[in-house]
Design a protein around this nucleic acid. Structure first.
Lengths: 350, 350
DNA sequence: CTGTTAGCGCGTTCAT
DNA sequence: ATGAACGCGCTAACAG
């Protein structure tokens, strides 16, 4: 903003009218003769007038901006989410202020306070790093806020939320394996203590129960975190063997990265997927469809999630009462899962 | 902003001073006695005062906000870029206004005008959809702007840029194959008419020249676009066979997706990589490291690109003169490329 | 229909 | 060291 832009007063002077006449003309006020309105609009055009949103915001008490906090922008997962958010925001004439928290609680709080400072009209938060802290730290919050995929325990009147039905997702994965004839089905988890993992595991158990299939503690392998420095792929790699040793023929993995890790471990161990072992992931990341074999997985459609969350925010702006949403994931069948091949001899060789 | 937040006047009234005293106290003005300064700060804290960035901006003529236009947020490529941008922006106390153009020229212009309207301090554009149009449409632009990976032809005084050295990238890929003993090296391109492709091809030729290796028109396969509806993977799939038929033992692919397509075609044709054929990609997308075999590729480090671009913008804010940057890519060696195996008989079988 | 005035919240000069 | 007054650019209430 080195050169100050021209204002409505500049064009008022030029037109020989008052600045409020210009303001009205530009806003298509009915209180203006059609003639001067067109004249002024033309003049504004000629003078390259660009209205000042800052001044308008100060007056309107509305910034037409929403703040978005995600863990990481580089994560394709959140990328899709933001894409969905952006799409409906743009359509509604709203702008996005984006901030990454990198899973750090401090940074997340800082981002939210910054949004507050900038007087955003609403806030979207997609980050699992939070919990009850919210209730304390963010109490003085009057800005409409929608939490995405976050365990929202209380404060239902202030915080709204949209989340995925992880239990359903787990069930879908396991039911799929059951249909394929598996009856020794394992679960491979990362042990991050998240509600998501807890519920996917629940879905796993539920599906087994419902099918009357046996359950075995040895079939559930959840990584024990001593240090935070391990990634999901390596978890999958490490944990696979013990499940195989326990005799499972199909495994539901907490997410796709874990499944990819398991797949890599299979290759090293000479276990062929899906002939010897079926794998099902969760998330449907892009990688899932390109890897060999392509991964059967539960898909979340993050962009839809973003759209729903942003739409919810729009409803809140209009004073509507909104209900927390739980989105249903769905199964994407690919080549990493197949019907069980019964072979008495080769089974021993594993 | 349903409930109006408290202002400096509110806390001035409470403290029994004028609002300008409060303003000064909060900004650590030396014109204030240390005592009242602390008192007022404490009071502000108690009253949950949050300064109004909008009002400040109107006064300062500075929004501490930069606008970012990318083709797609969901694209991991741009995700990384934005992550880099965001990181240095945050550190400098700047905010990001994000917008996606989806490769649509209209949307891109609209985004930029919107940024203009919102009085951003600077703009970053990462989208290839543009060209000379800029010179015309965006002439009245006084906002510091940095173009990322865009052919910036003229207007060097207004637009600044950071881009990758595609020619060097092409050379690196081909030199690598040469070192491995290949002497019939092909290029597989998408034919999108971009400067990037043109320069990567140039790098390919340059490397061959420099090594004194033969060149053959049949070794360069560039897809001819009749319709826009084909993706890079399918291009790679389609074009591979003709290069193989031409007798190449190594192929430099325009990007990783093309290389992945080529790889899939190899699997179908029974060509084993890297034993029969070496493949090198470009971009180093996440997928490249997970596919089988992992892909040798030229890496761009988009996050660095974002950091550099944002840093350049910061320099511009400080009135420094900046130079357009060209970043050097580097080779990432993986299992899709290997030394040539000379075998007289099997060579015929291809 | 149009002009005058006030105020959104804040920073800053000009007095004192 | 502090208060009064003005302006950033715009919208809206109030006069005419």
């Amino acid at each position: 903003m080195s050169k100050r832009k021209i204002s409505i007063e500049d064009i008022a002077r030029q037109a020989g009218v008052s600045h409020s006449t210009v303001s009205r003309a530009l806003r298509d006020s009915p209180l203006i003769s059609a003639k001067v309105r067109e004249e002024i609009k033309k003049l504004a055009q000629e003078m390259n007038y660009v209205p000042n949103a800052i001044a308008q915001s100060l007056q309107n008490q509305r910034t037409y901006t929403v703040g978005v906090v995600v863990t990481s922008i580089a994560d394709p997962f959140f990328g899709e989410l933001v894409e969905g958010i952006e799409q409906v925001a743009k359509q509604a004439g709203l702008n996005l202020l984006l901030s990454a928290s990198h899973g750090d609680f401090e940074q997340e709080i800082a981002a939210i306070e910054n949004f507050h400072y900038r007087r955003v009209d609403g806030i979207l938060i997609a980050d699992s790093r939070i919990s009850k802290h919210y209730t304390q730290q963010l109490t003085p919050f009057t800005v409409p806020t929608v939490l995405i995929n976050i365990d929202t325990e209380d404060k239902d009147d202030i915080f709204h939320s949209v989340a995925i039905d992880d239990r359903l997702g787990g069930s879908l994965a396991v039911e799929h394996l059951i249909k394929l004839g598996h009856n020794a089905i394992g679960y491979l988890g990362v042990g991050d203590g998240s509600k998501a993992e807890q519920q996917r595991l629940e879905g796993y158990k539920m599906a087994l129960n419902q099918a009357g299939l046996p359950q075995n503690p040895d079939w559930v392998a959840i990584f024990h975190r001593d240090q935070e420095t391990i990634n999901d792929i390596d978890i999958g790699k490490k944990m696979l063997s013990q499940l195989v040793a326990a005799g499972v023929t199909g495994i539901f993995c907490y997410n796709d990265m874990v499944a990819v890790g398991a797949l890599l471990a299979c290759k090293e161990l000479g276990i062929s997927v899906p002939q010897d072992l079926s794998l099902v992931g969760f998330d449907n990341i892009a990688l899932a469809s390109y890897i060999t074999p392509p991964l059967t997985t539960v898909s979340q459609r993050m962009s839809e999630m973003g759209e729903v969350a942003m739409t919810m925010l729009l409803d809140l702006f209009q004073g509507k009462t909104v209900e927390n949403q739980i989105l249903s994931p769905f199964l994407v069948k690919r080549a990493s899962s197949a019907t069980v091949i019964v072979r008495k001899n080769s089974a021993i060789s594993v």
